[in-house]
Deep mutational scan, measured.
Amino acid sequence: GFTKEQQRLGIPKDPRQWTETHVRDWVMWAVNEFSLKGVDFQKFCMNGAALCALGKDCFLELAPDFVGDILWEHLEILQKE
């Protein structure tokens, strides 16, 4: 899971503390893990605080249908851990 990747890359547990690099690493991991298609990494050029502050509607505009939902749900789980 993502926990191993977080440990390997030194990504903080709390997504709100992520840098732009951490956000990119997470999106890249999720794309590979969940076989997601059509993700534009440029749209995720922000730090974790900005990403978490978007709200669901704005977040879902960053990625194609269903893909955004998967990313959003995973981000929500990470914020609760």
Rank of each mutant, 00 (worst) to 15 (best):
G1P: 06
G1D: 15
G1F: 14
G1L: 08
G1C: 07
F2I: 05
F2T: 07
F2P: 05
F2D: 08
T3C: 10
T3A: 12
T3S: 14
T3Q: 12
K4E: 14
K4H: 08
K4L: 10
K4V: 10
K4Q: 12
K4M: 12
K4D: 11
K4P: 05
E5H: 10
E5G: 06
E5S: 06
E5R: 09
E5W: 07
Q6K: 08
Q6S: 14
Q6A: 14
Q7S: 11
Q7P: 06
Q7A: 11
Q7F: 09
Q7D: 14
Q7Y: 09
R8V: 09
R8A: 11
R8E: 10
R8Q: 10
R8S: 08
R8C: 08
L9H: 07
L9N: 08
L9I: 08
L9T: 10
L9R: 13
L9P: 05
G10T: 09
G10E: 11
G10K: 13
I11C: 09
I11P: 04
I11L: 13
I11Q: 05
I11F: 08
I11Y: 07
P12K: 04
P12S: 06
P12M: 02
P12L: 03
P12H: 05
K13A: 12
K13P: 14
K13S: 14
K13D: 11
K13F: 08
K13G: 10
K13M: 10
D14Y: 05
D14G: 01
D14L: 03
D14E: 08
D14V: 03
D14F: 04
P15L: 06
P15M: 06
P15W: 02
P15V: 10
P15G: 01
R16M: 12
R16S: 10
R16V: 11
R16P: 03
Q17Y: 08
Q17N: 13
Q17H: 09
W18S: 01
W18A: 00
W18G: 00
W18T: 00
T19E: 08
T19P: 00
T19W: 00
T19K: 08
T19C: 07
T19R: 07
E20V: 13
E20R: 10
H22E: 11
H22Q: 11
H22V: 03
H22I: 01
V23S: 04
V23M: 01
V23F: 01
V23K: 01
V23A: 03
R24D: 01
R24Y: 08
D25H: 15
D25L: 14
D25T: 12
W26C: 03
W26G: 01
W26V: 01
W26T: 00
W26R: 01
W26A: 01
V27L: 13
V27T: 05
V27C: 08
V27H: 01
V27S: 01
V27N: 02
M28T: 15
M28Q: 14
M28C: 13
M28V: 14
M28P: 01
W29K: 03
W29D: 02
W29R: 04
W29Q: 03
A30H: 09
A30D: 03
A30S: 11
V31C: 13
V31T: 14
V31P: 01
V31F: 03
N32D: 15
N32G: 13
N32V: 09
E33S: 09
E33F: 09
E33T: 11
E33V: 07
E33D: 06
E33W: 08
E33L: 04
E33P: 02
F34K: 08
F34Y: 13
F34D: 03
S35F: 05
S35R: 12
S35K: 13
L36N: 02
L36S: 02
L36G: 03
L36E: 00
L36C: 05
L36P: 02
L36T: 02
L36V: 06
L36R: 00
L36A: 04
K37P: 12
K37I: 11
K37S: 12
K37F: 07
K37V: 13
K37W: 07
K37R: 10
G38D: 12
G38I: 04
G38R: 08
G38K: 11
V39K: 04
V39Q: 03
V39N: 02
D40V: 07
D40E: 11
D40N: 08
D40K: 07
D40C: 09
F41S: 12
F41P: 15
F41E: 12
F41M: 15
F41Y: 15
F41C: 12
F41D: 11
Q42P: 07
Q42N: 11
Q42M: 07
Q42W: 03
Q42H: 11
Q42G: 14
K43T: 06
K43C: 07
K43G: 06
K43V: 04
K43I: 04
K43P: 06
K43S: 08
K43A: 09
K43W: 01
K43Y: 05
F44P: 01
F44I: 05
F44N: 00
F44A: 02
F44V: 04
F44L: 08
F44S: 02
C45I: 08
C45S: 14
C45G: 14
C45L: 10
M46N: 02
M46S: 02
N47L: 01
N47P: 14
N47F: 00
N47D: 13
N47Y: 02
G48S: 01
G48C: 01
G48E: 02
A49P: 08
A49W: 06
A49S: 13
A49H: 11
A50T: 13
A50G: 07
A50I: 07
A50S: 13
A50P: 02
L51K: 00
L51H: 02
L51F: 01
C52G: 03
C52W: 03
C52V: 11
C52M: 10
C52S: 07
C52A: 06
A53P: 00
A53F: 03
A53V: 05
L54M: 13
L54H: 03
L54Y: 06
L54V: 06
L54N: 06
G55W: 02
G55D: 15
G55K: 15
G55I: 02
K56A: 04
K56I: 02
K56G: 01
K56S: 02
K56Q: 07
K56Y: 09
K56V: 03
K56N: 03
D57S: 13
D57F: 06
D57H: 11
D57K: 14
D57I: 08
C58K: 13
C58L: 13
C58N: 15
C58H: 15
C58Y: 14
C58E: 15
F59L: 06
F59D: 02
L60D: 07
L60C: 10
L60P: 03
E61S: 13
E61G: 11
E61W: 01
E61F: 02
L62P: 00
L62Q: 06
L62W: 04
L62V: 05
A63S: 09
A63W: 13
A63M: 09
A63D: 01
P64R: 03
P64H: 05
P64A: 04
D65P: 15
D65N: 15
D65T: 15
D65V: 12
D65M: 13
D65L: 10
F66P: 15
F66S: 15
F66T: 15
F66H: 15
V67Q: 11
V67T: 11
V67A: 11
V67W: 04
V67L: 06
V67I: 08
V67G: 13
G68A: 09
G68Y: 03
G68F: 01
G68W: 03
G68V: 06
G68C: 08
D69H: 08
D69K: 11
D69G: 11
D69W: 06
D69C: 08
D69Y: 12
I70L: 10
I70N: 03
I70F: 08
I70T: 13
I70Y: 08
I70C: 10
I70E: 05
I70K: 11
L71D: 03
L71E: 01
L71Y: 00
L71R: 00
W72I: 00
W72G: 02
W72H: 05
W72K: 00
E73R: 10
E73F: 06
E73L: 06
E73V: 03
E73I: 03
E73N: 09
E73M: 06
E73A: 10
E73T: 07
E73C: 06
H74I: 03
H74R: 07
H74Q: 13
E76Q: 12
E76L: 10
E76H: 10
E76V: 09
E76M: 15
I77E: 12
I77N: 15
I77G: 15
L78H: 03
L78V: 10
L78A: 06
L78P: 04
Q79H: 08
